[in-house]
Design a protein around this nucleic acid. Sequence first.
DNA 1: TTGTTTCATAACTGATGAGTTATGGATGAG
DNA 2: CTCATCCATAACTCATCAGTTATGAAACAA
Lengths: 107, 107
Amino acid sequence: METQTDLLFRALADPTRRALFERLCREGEQTVGALTATAGVSQPAVSKHLAALKAAGLVADRHEGRQTHYSPRTAALGPLADWTKDMSRFWEGRFDALEDLLNRMDQ
Amino acid sequence: METQTDLLFRALADPTRRALFERLCREGEQTVGALTATAGVSQPAVSKHLAALKAAGLVADRHEGRQTHYSPRTAALGPLADWTKDMSRFWEGRFDALEDLLNRMDQ
DNA sequence: TTGTTTCATAACTGATGAGTTATGGATGAG
DNA sequence: CTCATCCATAACTCATCAGTTATGAAACAA
């Protein structure tokens, strides 16, 4: 079966898709047209990537007339942060750079 | 070009590969044979996954006689933690669940 | 109504990659 | 020196997926 975590990791694996999500995080809500203008791929490609991000819960869409506005849902990154921290914790106390990692995550 | 971040996200995208890494984090150093025993895929498949994890810096290998021991390198998760935090920060102050995410990351 | 714009979907192509079996190199056991 | 064991690589198959062009639906403009 396809868990939500699987979906999340897979959604972020593609560079083009990750770049779209990054733009939304940096610049805020954007229409498909605006995203397509500088995405380097065709409009249908952008739409498909946005659908994948939406399936992973990473973006939300809002319809306004002919346009569809997409915005980031950074809350969806929660499981990713949890997983990263868990992996470090499991390995904790053995010998490695856990402290460095946690320091980086603590603000 | 293939950045180190691309390599990291791609390495973690596959469920079988992620499961191998999780096992190493939970149980510590393992030989290829031990990992293969419960991986659900063939020994060459395991070897290839381990090679991918190694290319991403997520594991290290140690040769001892005929056996190869693999251990996790959780420090390689640093860029992932950084990226996650950056994305949340960019979106910070706009309106969403940043606090919840950061609380989860703060220990 | 007629035409234009915006986006999503369908249909297809090509590349990538996860899996397999086969094999070989290296080490250890006898 | 055999022979078995452990792992990595080669060679191949098959599915998945990122990209394309073509098209259609819906909203606005005239």
